[in-house]
Every structure is written in C-alpha cells, then in structure tokens.
Nucleic acid binder design. Structure first.
Length: 280
DNA sequence: ACTACGTCCTGCTTGC
DNA sequence: TGCAAGCAGGACGTAG
C-alpha cells in the first residue's frame, strides 16, 4: 500500500520518537513479521533489546533504524503496514504484529495483510543495510541520477509501467503514482520502454518526481483506513489524483472518461484519449 | 540473462 | 439476505 510519500510521511512522524532513544521492550505478536529474520522473533527481540537508535532513514519504500550496535532494523510496510505511536500499548488490536517500547513511548507495527516485515541486517557500502542494497535511489533523493534512469527506462522492451514499478531501476513508485505519472506524461502504460524517446523518458521521470513531491506535501494518499501517519492521521493527496480510482470520471485535461483496465492481477487507470496505446 | 506470473495474507466490496 | 468471488496501495521466487 504505502508508496514513497506515505513511507516518508511515516519516517518524518516517527523520527522524533526514536532518534536517541533506547529499545526497552520488544513484543513480537505474529511470526510473519519476523519471517525474514534468520533466527526469527527470538533473534529479533534479543538483538534489538538495549540498542540505542541513532537515526531513521528511508530509500524508496524501505525504512531503517540505525542502531548503536552497528546493525540496522529494516522495515517494509508491504501493502497494509502502519507504524503508530502510543502512550500505552493498546489491548485487543488484532492487527498489531509487534510492539516496541522506546523510552516511555510504545510503537506499534500494525499490518492487516501481513506482507510487511522487519529484520536486523548489517550496514554495507553507502550506508545501506543488506536488504536495501539492490534498491535504486528514489526520485526525491539527491543521489537520483535522471540520465542513468533514462538510459534504464529506454534499454528494455518491458512495458513502461513495469519498469516504473521496478524498484531496482527507480524506487518508491507503486501502482498509484505510476498511473499518475504516466497520465501526466500522456504515455500508455503498455508502451515498451525502448520505444520512448530520451526526451519522453526524461519527462516521465520529472512527472514521477513531481507527483511524489506533491503527494508528500499532502501527507500521502489515504483511500481508506489502511494508510495513516504515526498519529493516525490520514493523507489528503487522493483529492488531487487525476486518474487513480477515478474510473468513469471526466479526465481533467480532455473531458473524456477515465478507464480502468487489468494489469497483472491489479488495475491500471488511464485516460484512453490522452494516453494512446502505441502502434503495433 | 531477461521477463512474466503466481504467491504470500486479511478484510471489505460487489454481484449473483 | 447470504454467500462466494473479486479486489486492494508490494515484492519475491520460480518457471519459461
């Protein structure tokens, strides 16, 4: 669920509660949350206890806490993950998968669909934890290299939407913002990457960066209760979405109807008039 | 090597 | 009304 703007909103909200704080208590309530940890919940808990958090970073949709042990606690929210901060642990919340106490705050990892995970990992080259090493820079990062991304976008016959969703090419973009960026660039999602001009690819990267930045300013996108910030607040960018979730509504550019079509067991939203399928 | 597909989950919505 | 199928914002392993 959460894409870059939502994850960054969580990072900013969580940062003041964790930076400089020591992990005083760890409760793993569901085994799936620690499934990527080789030693499971026990290892996660024992190696985390007593660690001091030195920082909270993000790359694409991945978050990690830098620990004074030299390791990082890497978190991925998956489709439905949330991080919430409480004064006391909430009893009987069926979706809390883990609790952490840092100083006097209780931090919950909630995740209805349990695709999210967390694991401890060594920090490698570039300050990136091992599970994040393969993830490309995201468009809001100063490390992002538009020329290099452009080359990657146009080097393959894969559909442009698949490439946008490939976190090893450009990170942080998910189904919502891929559709929004493609609409802004008037590109059909099935367009093969290697048929795009360099200018079109560069423009698309710019549109992706713009939509992510605007969504971040709005605190992210909340279609339902599944995405909220650390205090439970909703994001507001859904009011500014041009195509996503707007099947049948008028395209704000040409007035034609927005359509929804199948895309790898999911949906793509587009304006068929503005975003013409490539020939052949 | 590269690409497409199925799969891991739960819960809400839709349609028969 | 009830039930089953469909659908959801992600990423990985595997098969082709």
């Amino acid at each position: 669920m959460p894409e870059l703007p939502e994850v960054e909103t969580v990072r900013r909200g969580l940062d003041p509660y964790v930076r400089g704080a020591t992990v005083a208590e760890v409760r793993i309530l569901h085994p799936r949350v620690s499934r990527r940890q080789p030693g499971g919940a026990t290892e996660l808990r024992t190696r985390l206890l007593g660690c001091r958090v030195e920082g909270l970073q993000r790359r694409g949709k991945y978050l990690w806490l830098n620990l004074d042990s030299g390791e990082a606690l890497v978190l991925h929210l998956g489709m439905s993950g949330q991080i919430r901060v409480f004064e006391e642990p909430v009893a009987d919340d069926p979706h809390v998968r883990a609790w952490f106490r840092l100083e006097e705050r209780w931090i919950a990892f909630r995740d209805m669909r349990t695709f999210g995970w967390m694991m401890l990992a060594p920090v490698g080259p570039g300050g990136l934890p091992a599970p994040v090493q393969h993830i490309a820079a995201d468009p809001l990062s100063p490390e992002s290299d538009s020329a290099a991304v452009t080359r990657n976008l146009t080097a393959t016959s894969r559909s442009i939407k698949r490439i946008l969703l490939d976190q090893e090419v450009i990170s942080g973009i998910g189904n919502i913002y891929a559709d929004e960026a493609l609409w802004r660039s008037r590109i059909h999602f099935e367009t093969p990457g290697d048929t795009l001009s360099e200018a079109a690819a560069l423009g698309l990267i710019g549109d992706a960066r713009d939509v992510l930045a605007e969504a971040l300013d709005a605190g992210g996108t909340s279609f339902d209760a599944l995405y909220v910030g650390v205090s439970g607040q909703q994001g507001w960018f859904q009011r500014h979405l041009s195509v996503y979730g707007r099947e049948g509504e008028a395209c704000e550019r040409c007035g034609g109807p927005i359509s929804r079509v199948a895309f790898t067991n999911r949906s793509s939203y587009l304006c068929p008039a503005c975003q013409q399928r490539p020939e052949g």
